[in-house]
Every structure is written in structure tokens, then in C-alpha cells.
Write a protein that binds this DNA or RNA. Sequence first.
DNA 1: ATGCATGAGAG
DNA 2: TCTCATGCATA
Length: 376
Amino acid sequence: MTMSMYSTTDKMKMSAPSCFPGRYSPSYRSSEQMRRCMPNPSSRLLEDASLLCNSWSARQNGDIFAGINDGILSRAEALAAVDIQKHQAQHVHSQMPSQIKHDVMYHHHTMSGPPQRPLQMHHSMDQLDMLDPTGQMTTLAPISESPLTPTHQHLHGSYHSMNHMMSHHHPGTLSGHTGGHHGHSAVHHPVITAAVAAAGLHPDTDTDPRELEAFAERFKQRRIKLGVTQADVGKALANLKLPGVGALSQSTICRFESLTLSHNNMIALKPILQAWLEEAEAQAKNKRRDPDAPSVLPAGEKKRTSIAAPEKRSLEAYFAVQPRPSGEKIAAIAEKLDLKKNVVRVWFCNQRQKQKRIVSSVTPSMTGHGSAGFGY
DNA sequence: ATGCATGAGAG
DNA sequence: TCTCATGCATA
């Protein structure tokens, strides 16, 4: 049955890198990053909600959402409604007629396509071309500072640099959370060292946000020059045959270029993308030689929830008040908005994640040359 | 380019 | 249950 043959899972299981801890420094994220969180539009609403919150939280400090049902929740919702009216000039809201449905699902698949298979040892024997049909996607995590992220099978354990934490995450994605940290140095591990060398990087340099940003920019331009799409790059990565490195999705490449990834994730991916870039340019130069090396140049329906704008505004308002609502609060919000609890929970998770994205920490003014497009 | 989702791993 | 890394599907 449908099972989830979902690739994601499989992929992750098989490919997991393990190392990672590159962790960004706490200050890194929190301070600068936070300021730019909530990007847009409904900022006004958020402000309203915040104000509301201030007065309230001032005293109820502890559990702001305590009275969520009739308290903030409704107020925030009211604000949201107002906001909506202003912007959309139209119906009102509160309950929304139903026309605008929130939580719409789109079809899903069942197996279709491209099975992206988990990577296992990838290197299939048939590595024919670069884009291997079964693109195996890899997950990587930052290895301490020089991430290369091999998959767990290979390295894991890595070390010290991660000092604390690390237990290793194994299979899966690697995430290195937990720790914070700064970093540096773990680059002496053989594998890592090799990877670093291959990529030609400098460990310390790699963790500098500005360097990351500069690299992302360079990467994008050179990639375009090569005439390679983001999707092509993702698939071609598998052909690099770096230990533990399989394919990545277009989404991830896109996010890397736009710095919409966590600092750690950026650090982990940089060496890999750099390695690809160098190899791709080399191949482009000598017109595809080494027949041995696969070229790195180009040669299911799931359900998806769509939260309507009104509900989204309300969620944003709630988020401004309490980014981490408890399970009960979430349930209350879900009920109010007529959304599934899980949908609301995931929305908050994603919102929090969004807030932490690296972009937030890189200010254009820092770089001098605006960054490609991330506003602010 | 992004919204919503999944799943591993860590508390 | 949360955080993270990542992906699919969609706009």
C-alpha cells in the first residue's frame, strides 16, 4: 500500500552522515537573526498582537496563552480579522464562510515516480551518467567546521570538535542541534581533512557568515555560467562520489544560494558544493575527459495543506505572542481556526525554523555588496 | 522560490 | 515534543 515508500524516509535512513556539529554560535543566531524574523506583511498585525501581548504578558508573564481561548486568542484573531479587512476589503472573517477553505489538500501520490532512492552506497555500478536516475539524495550535516559530511557509515564519530554533544547522530539527517558552539577545529580528521583538501577550503574561513554569503553568491554565478540548473547540481552531486554525499534536491540548492538554510547547514554544504563547482568547471574546461569520472555537468503525490490567508494571519499573530504554544494551546488554536491540530503544530515548527534561517544573520551592510536578493 | 511535511535524533 | 535537514509540490 501506499506505504510510505516515501523516499524521504528511506533516504534518510540510509544516508546519514553523521557528523556535524558545526553549530553556530548562539550569539550568532540569536542576536542578529532574531531581528529580522518575521519578514513581512503582516508585521502590523504582529505588532498589534505584540502590543497586546505586552500589556498582558507583563503580568501574566508565565503563560500567556493561558487564557487563550477567550483571551489573546480571540483578540489576536480579531486583529487578524481587522487586518484582513483592511487588506482585502471584503468579507469578514471571523469564521469565514467556508469558501475560503483553509486546509486544503492536494492529491498525493502513490508511488510514482522517481524514486529517489536512498542512498546506500551509492555508487552503483552503473554510474553512467551524471544524473543518475535514481538520484540518491543525501543528507548531510555539518561537520564541525568543515563539513563534509560524510555519511555515517564512514565517519562518524568524529570528533571533538563537537565537543559536547555529539553523540553522533546517526543515520539520518544530521542535525546538529544542540550545541552551540563555535567551533572550530575538527578538521583534522583524516576524512574531513581529505574532504577539506578536496574542496580546497579553509576551515576557519568556512564558518564565517560573510564568507558563506560570498561563496553562495559566487557559486550561483558560476553555476549559471556553466548553464547548470539548481536541480542539475543536486543530482550531479551524487556523481562526485564523495563519501556519504548523494544527491540533493533543487530546493536545497536554491536555499543554499539564497542563504535560506541554517548556518550549520550552510557550513556542511559548502565544501560539497565547492567540490562540485570545481569539478564541473574542470570538466567544462577540458571538454569532458576522464571517461572514468562521471560527469557532473548536465548532460508521488503527496498531500499538501494550504492554509488560507486569514488563518495564516491569525497564526502569525499568535506566533508573535507565543512562538512555542503548548499542545493544548495548539489544539485551541486549531479549533479556533478550524484547522487540524497537526497542521497547526507543524506550522509553528516551520515558523520557528524560518526564524532561524541564516539569512537573518547576514546583513547586507556587512557585505557591502548586496546580496543577491535577500531583501532586507 | 517557498509552503508544508517527514523523520531522525535529542531531550 | 522539539529541532534540524531536507524534500515534494506548488506558485
